[in-house]
Deep mutational scan, measured.
Amino acid sequence: NKFNKELQWATWEILNLPNLNEEQVKAFIDSLKDDPSQSANLLAEAKKLNDAQA
């Protein structure tokens, strides 16, 4: 289903952001699991944090 694909993509993207630490990655992944419908928003937040920590 649509959410599953978005969830998988967002998870992969977050796991490959170079500037997030392990705790941050885990928090984002946990949030994705809690509410897959928010995957696009969570991914945007993760990318923002990644850029801020570059």
Rank of each mutant, 00 (worst) to 15 (best):
V25H: 07
Q8V: 08
S31I: 12
L17T: 01
A40I: 08
L49W: 04
E23K: 09
Q24A: 03
Q8N: 04
A54N: 06
Q8F: 06
D35Y: 08
K47T: 10
A10E: 02
A46W: 02
T11G: 03
E6Q: 05
L49E: 03
A46E: 00
K5A: 15
L32G: 01
L49R: 05
N21K: 14
S37N: 09
K2V: 15
A40S: 14
D35H: 09
E45Y: 08
L15Y: 08
F3P: 15
E6T: 04
N41D: 11
S31F: 12
N41V: 14
D34F: 11
I29V: 13
A52E: 14
E45I: 09
I29N: 02
L20R: 00
E22G: 08
Q38M: 10
N50V: 01
Q38A: 08
V25M: 10
L15E: 14
D30P: 00
K26S: 07
Q24H: 03
K33Q: 11
K47M: 12
E6L: 07
L42W: 06
L43N: 01
D35A: 09
N19Q: 05
L20V: 02
P36R: 03
P18W: 04
Q8D: 04
A54W: 08
I29R: 03
L15I: 12
T11E: 08
D34K: 15
L32I: 07
E45V: 08
I29D: 00
Q24Y: 02
F28Q: 00
N16D: 06
F3E: 13
L32M: 14
V25P: 00
V25E: 02
K2P: 09
E6K: 03
K33L: 14
I14T: 01
W12S: 15
V25R: 15
K5N: 11
L49M: 08
I29T: 05
N4E: 15
K48H: 10
N21A: 12
S39Y: 15
N16G: 06
L43Q: 03
Q53P: 03
A40Q: 14
P36W: 05
A46Y: 03
E45A: 12
E23L: 11
E13A: 06
D35I: 04
I29M: 08
L15T: 15
W9Y: 14
I14M: 05
L43Y: 06
I14V: 06
K48Q: 13
P36V: 06
A46N: 00
L43G: 01
A52L: 12
W12Q: 15
A52S: 13
K33T: 12
W12M: 14
N50H: 03
L49F: 05
A44F: 10
E45W: 05
A27M: 13
L17Q: 05
W12Y: 10
S31L: 09
E23T: 10
E13L: 05
E6H: 08
L7G: 06
A46Q: 01
P36D: 03
E23N: 10
L49Y: 05
A10D: 03
K33V: 10
A52V: 13
L17W: 02
K48R: 10
K48I: 10
A52I: 10
Q38R: 13
D51L: 12
E23H: 11
L32F: 04
S31T: 12
N41S: 12
S39P: 04
N21R: 13
A54M: 10
F3A: 06
E22H: 14
L7Q: 12
A54P: 07
L42E: 01
K47E: 05
A27Q: 13
K48W: 05
L43P: 00
A54T: 13
I14Q: 01
A44K: 15
K26E: 05
N41L: 08
K33I: 06
P18F: 06
S39G: 07
L32W: 02
I14F: 03
E23M: 13
D30N: 12
Q24F: 01
W9E: 15
E23W: 14
W12I: 07
E23D: 13
A54K: 04
E22T: 13
D30G: 15
F3I: 12
Q8R: 06
P18K: 09
Q24S: 02
A46G: 02
D34Q: 14
E45T: 09
K26V: 08
T11F: 11
K5R: 04
K2N: 15
N50P: 00
T11V: 09
A46P: 00
S37A: 12
K33H: 14
I29Y: 03
A44V: 12
A40W: 10
L17H: 03
F3R: 00
D30W: 10
Q8K: 11
D51R: 08
L15W: 06
T11L: 13
A27I: 11
N1V: 04
Q8Y: 09
A10Q: 04
T11A: 06
Q38W: 04
D35G: 04
S39W: 14
T11W: 05
K48N: 13
L7M: 12
Q38F: 04
L7V: 14
K26I: 11
W9H: 14
L43D: 01
D51M: 10
A40F: 11
K2S: 15
I29E: 02
L15G: 06
A46I: 02
S31E: 12
Q53K: 03
P18L: 07
A44D: 11
N21F: 13
L49P: 00
N16I: 07
T11H: 03
E22V: 11
D51W: 09
S37H: 07
S31R: 14
L15A: 05
I14Y: 01
E45F: 06
D30L: 08
V25T: 13
P36N: 03
E45G: 04
K26W: 08
K5F: 06
